[in-house]
Design a binder for these strands. Structure first.
Lengths: 270, 270
DNA sequence: TTTCTTGTTTCGCTGGCCGAAACGACGTTT
DNA sequence: AAACGTCGTTTCGGCCAGCGAAACAAGAAA
């Protein structure tokens, strides 16, 4: 154990600039808890008050953070809008998916989502909200696990073997009694997803939520995203399920086509 | 001049964490020049290559920056989407303005914009693009001057006296021959804007662009934003001007009303 | 009033950050 | 195919920027 460092004096985080890393952690924390004060944020990020104050001061000068009029609490600044909007505009995947998400949401009347994988997490990079007053809360840019939920499992099913292994061998947190927390069961589910080309997930992350998702491929056939919908299980009937599944599959294939994929959904060899 | 520091050894930027500041500068620079390499970004930000590399490394770990597949260039990461979307959601001004921008853009068929002032700049915090193929390029989160353009001048006209003085006494950069670069002329224009309650600006920032804007007030009557449209001057005729002006004024007042303003557009005493 | 709790400021130490320069891997040119 | 240029990456040691602790100020709550 101690000898781990002996081989080479190479720190896995050697190039990390810690003050910048802590500033970004603070910024992302603030995004999730707006209208917080210095002390509150210091506790949430486990930093000292003085550091938190200095970081907020620095971020404020760049417009990424803003003091509320009462001068006591902080919120994200308007300059953060630039980062989000430019990131969106610069992604071909997102811009071509947006009209498709609109169609999918219009025909199913449920939330339509586009997810990608980032290391061992999924991240929602685009969405269109359901018109229903009762709808699932979802937010762009949030991270989540790969082993639970429809879209996440699609991503995992088509991820490199090494990624799948790391997830399967890790702790498979159970969110509900429907969650898959058994490694073998997960492997079987992933195989099923590759065979069927889509997934229907019910009550895995929350007992009252369903989701349906299918893979999105780029020009070379590699799965780069998952397109799907989610909504309250109350709206999931036998007939609506068929409609939903058809809409998700059609739109996922349409999106793949727009990204240059010319093939047909072939059964992935496992 | 030299004695400015003598009074108190207080550095105006004393709380600034320089590495964080440079990291944010880098991030905002990357937002404006995607697909850049380390060397390119180092030059653009006037930092060393090593620092730029370390900052990118740090930002990448947080998902704010992403390496392109070819492993040579960098782009904004998907985590930046979170910052933008949360900033948008958390702003009551933006969320209530969005449907109004849609209406304004639909009726005028031009770009509809919402601007606020941030120190001596204006910043576009929401927009809805014109349906026309020929339209002005505008981006959310970009900064610009206060003395040129319709919306910016509305903001300046209603800014605190101290802000107006700082702008007027500064260098009034001329972008076209229509730009107002004379201090007295600017003061007169601002007075006119306060009297009329709106502004029509033609060819001030670009010879081929017009813009029409009006103030937006909060519950206390303070002007907190400017709502307006812009488009190519080719589409500005006598009849369309009247329609545009009416639409801008009506929607600006409607937005003010939704923000709790109960008064009527009164002439500001100058 | 007193007593918390907040945000802000100071201060001295030190270890993390920084620039310079070398390195290695491409791609391009001759 | 060899030489060159350019890019991203890595190393290194000095030194000062950034850090935590603690005092301070300013309100809010009791």
């Amino acid at each position: 154990m101690i000898s781990a460092k002996e081989e080479k004096n190479v720190d896995p985080a050697s190039y990390l600039v810690s003050s910048v890393d802590r500033a970004m952690h603070l910024l992302l924390t603030l995004a999730e808890m707006p209208d917080s004060g210095v002390t509150e944020l210091a506790e949430a990020t486990k930093n000292t008050k003085s550091l938190t104050f200095r970081l907020l001061f620095t971020l404020e000068r760049r417009g990424l953070v803003r003091k509320d009029p009462d001068r006591r609490t902080y919120t994200l600044g308007y300059r953060a809008l630039l980062l989000g909007d430019q990131s969106r505009r610069q992604s071909r995947l997102i811009t071509t998916a947006e009209p498709i998400l609109a169609d999918l949401s219009d025909t199913t009347r449920e939330n339509a989502l586009l997810l990608v994988r980032e290391d061992l997490n999924h991240i929602c990079i685009a969405m269109r909200a359901s018109p229903h007053p009762l709808r699932i809360f979802a937010a762009i840019g949030r991270l989540g696990p790969l082993h639970a939920g429809g879209g996440p499992k699609v991503l995992l099913a088509h991820a490199p073997a090494e990624v799948q292994e790391r997830v399967i061998s890790g702790a498979l947190e159970a969110f509900t009694e429907m969650s898959i927390s058994d490694a073998d069961a997960l492997v079987a589910t992933l195989k099923d997803i590759r065979a069927k080309g889509h997934v229907v997930s019910i009550g895995e992350l929350d007992p009252d939520i369903f989701s349906i998702a299918a893979p999105v491929r780029d020009h070379s056939g590699v799965v780069i995203a998952a397109l799907g919908i989610n909504g309250p299980t109350a709206r999931l009937t036998e007939t609506s399920l068929d409609q939903f599944r058809a809409a998700v599959l059609a739109n996922a294939d349409r999106l793949s086509g727009m990204l240059g994929w010319q093939g047909k959904t072939d059964v992935h060899p496992d």
